[in-house]
Simulated scan of single mutants.
Amino acid sequence: MKAGQHELDLIIFDCDGVLVDSEVLSCGCLSEALATCGIELKLADALELFLGRSMAAVLQHYGAQGRMLPDYFLPDLKARVRQAFQASLQPIPGVGSLLSGLRTPHCVASSSDLDRVSLSLALTGLAPHFDGRLYTSQMVERGKPAPDLFLYAAAKMQAEPHKTLVIEDSVSGVAAARAAGMKVWGFVGGSHYESRDGRAILYNAGANRVFDRMADFWTEGQRV
């Protein structure tokens, strides 16, 4: 067992941008789906506004502006995401090897819905590493940045929050982990951070550590 693993009850992985390189694909689909509703949202703005957030947060954002999205919006978006993922979704480099060697209990806690998380893990071959230990914002009252989802996952996994490590790529996810009383490492190896200073963004959000390669997950001397 790598140094540091014995100090943990649980490692919680976000899915999008941490296990699978999906954020640019999904935010691009969101921009396209909103365009059919007469709403312009550039990809960079989609990443800024909704990275790590649930679909409920999208609906609330536009609802607060008095812009109620039509009934066809969600089915259209879901179809676009499924098509894009089936065509182009890739796992984050090195994450399969990391998970294969992981001896600490681990699970997924994602703002995406369960169908999308399951699809993402199946398409990228990562599903066997989690054996159904998937928790999503659909299962709790409040999504990230509230701590509800991470606390729910820890309870289901019978883990103490202060002995839980969260791996996140978004400000809302880092904030949720901190609010849950958990350690959190920021991951900036996804393609959505190629033109943004992800390290500064996630450190400023409160991440205990930020890294950009899954091969460096357990660096020599790294303490949890």
Rank of each mutant, 00 (worst) to 15 (best):
D113K: 13
Y135W: 14
Y62G: 02
Q138C: 05
V166M: 13
A3F: 09
K2H: 12
Y62Q: 03
A56S: 09
G186R: 15
S118Y: 01
A159H: 12
Q158P: 00
L202Y: 10
R196Q: 11
G189L: 10
R133N: 02
V18K: 10
V188H: 07
H106V: 01
G96S: 09
R82A: 12
S54K: 07
S26N: 11
A215P: 00
K144T: 02
K42W: 01
F217G: 03
R80P: 05
V58F: 04
V210C: 07
L69G: 05
V95S: 03
M139C: 03
A33S: 13
H6A: 15
G63Q: 08
D16L: 08
V166R: 14
M214T: 02
T136R: 08
M139F: 08
R82Y: 06
L30F: 08
S170N: 13
L69W: 10
L19P: 02
K42I: 00
L10S: 06
S100F: 00
A57V: 01
A3Y: 06
D131A: 13
A57M: 06
G181K: 11
G4M: 08
H6C: 01
A35M: 07
F187A: 04
L74C: 05
H106P: 01
L102R: 06
V24R: 06
V58A: 04
F150R: 13
R196M: 13
A146R: 14
S172Q: 12
G190P: 05
V184A: 12
K42C: 01
